[in-house]
Design a binder for these strands. Structure first.
Length: 288
DNA sequence: TAGGCGTGGAC
DNA sequence: TGTCCAAGCCT
């Protein structure tokens, strides 16, 4: 089914792939794993400088594992979702302790590491180890929804039908290249907001375009406000801890958020998540 | 399974 | 301007 997609997309990728450092031949499994975690819900342009600094600072899992988790959080900077920094640090320690310092190569072993779900396990197994897996990220899901199903957007949660479709499209040869090519097409051409169908190598076969690009009809796509949320408050508090070295008096945290009830709740949440540590009654710091 | 979890750029 | 979105994961 839909095997006519392969050649045009692979040819397009050969001409249009971005030169990203984690795609270069020299990039090892650790470099690829770090990039995949950083890229979760985060644009490439923002990942690039942080990834580069991380790889210089911690070129191996053992190097990161030797540091306190707070250093991972500090050097995460403003990438967002800082639990990922903690996850990566825990990955480094697990890889060092249980895998002799080598990133495991199988989907199943990768999947057991903290912060590595279906997508990331499949991506690392594919891109770092050449394994054949259906790599279903938001880009791939959108491309398949449009080209094959004729709908503007995929369902909110990945369905078994989507997975079966993706698996049916796995090529016998070089599945990793196919995976990265479809992802790249989704990232550069078959974009969420304003798809560039004029530049698409499979426009002639795209079910959605052929149907006249009908508008999405599924359930409401939630758009969460950010200003005033606990998330914003947590971000402000953690920024203070990151930018200070060592313990921060609570007064310095109080200064960045007015609502005391929400501030306490957010701070408790950071501590519960392991992103912050209580030094004594009056101070906090990144985890040691 | 729906909702929580950061941040900033694009339109 | 506010809304939407970016290589998800976890509970």
């Amino acid at each position: 089914m839909a095997t006519g997609l392969h050649a045009p997309i692979l040819d397009w990728y050969a001409e249009n792939a971005r030169d990203l450092p984690w795609r270069r031949p020299g990039a090892g499994p650790w470099a690829i794993l770090v990039s995949e975690i950083m890229l979760q819900q985060t644009p490439v342009v923002r990942v690039l400088p942080v990834w580069t600094e991380w790889m210089e600072r911690w070129p191996t899992p053992a190097a990161l594992a030797a540091e306190p988790p707070g250093e991972a959080v500090r050097h995460w900077g403003r990438l967002g979702y800082p639990r990922r920094a903690l996850n990566l640090h825990a990955c480094a320690r697990a890889i060092t302790a249980e895998h002799a310092g080598q990133v495991p190569s199988s989907y199943e072993e990768l999947r057991r590491l903290p912060g590595i779900g279906d997508y990331t396990a499949a991506a690392v197994a594919s891109f770092a180890f050449g394994r054949s897996h259906a790599v279903l990220d938001t880009n791939v899901r959108r491309v398949l929804a449009r080209a094959v199903r004729g709908e503007e957007y995929p369902p909110k949660a990945t369905t078994t039908a989507e997975r079966r479709l993706a698996e049916s499209l796995l090529p016998a040869l070089d599945a990793p290249r196919w995976a990265v090519a479809v992802m790249e097409l989704g990232a550069l051409v078959c974009t969420a907001r304003t798809p560039r169908c004029a530049d698409c190598p499979v426009a002639a076969a795209c079910a959605w375009r052929l149907a006249g690009r009908p508008a999405y009809e599924g359930p409401e796509r939630r758009g969460q406000t950010y200003a005033g949320t606990d998330r914003q408050c947590r971000g402000r508090l953690l920024a203070v801890l990151r930018d200070a070295h060592g313990a921060v008096p609570k007064a310095a945290l109080d200064a960045v958020w007015d609502d005391a009830v929400q501030r306490e709740r957010a701070l408790d949440g950071l501590v519960a998540d392991g992103l912050a540590e209580v030094v004594d009654e009056g101070a906090y710091r990144l985890p040691t």
